[in-house]
Amino acid sequence: MKGDNLQELVEFVAQSLVDQPANVNVEKQQRGNMVQLELHVAKEDMGRVIGKGGRVANSIRTLLNVAAAREGSRANLDIVEPS
């Protein structure tokens, strides 16, 4: 399905960077050509996927946007703090 690879991209990068890869979960919602992704990680791993000054999160978003543009869609990534 369209956007699956975007979800997998975020999943792969997040799982490779965190201490608890089993607690990485990426949810996808599709509205027209807009792919909305929500990344959930363990609370202790939030810093690893966000990075100093948001550098990791922004790099993931940059790659995501490029990958989305290639299939004519747009993507948005939210990193959700576990409640």
């Binding site: 690879n5 991209l9 790659l63």
Partner: peptide
């Protein structure tokens, strides 16, 4: 893996 996920 990253390039494959980006369909490059």
């Amino acid at each position: 893996i990253i390039l494959e996920k980006m369909r490059v």
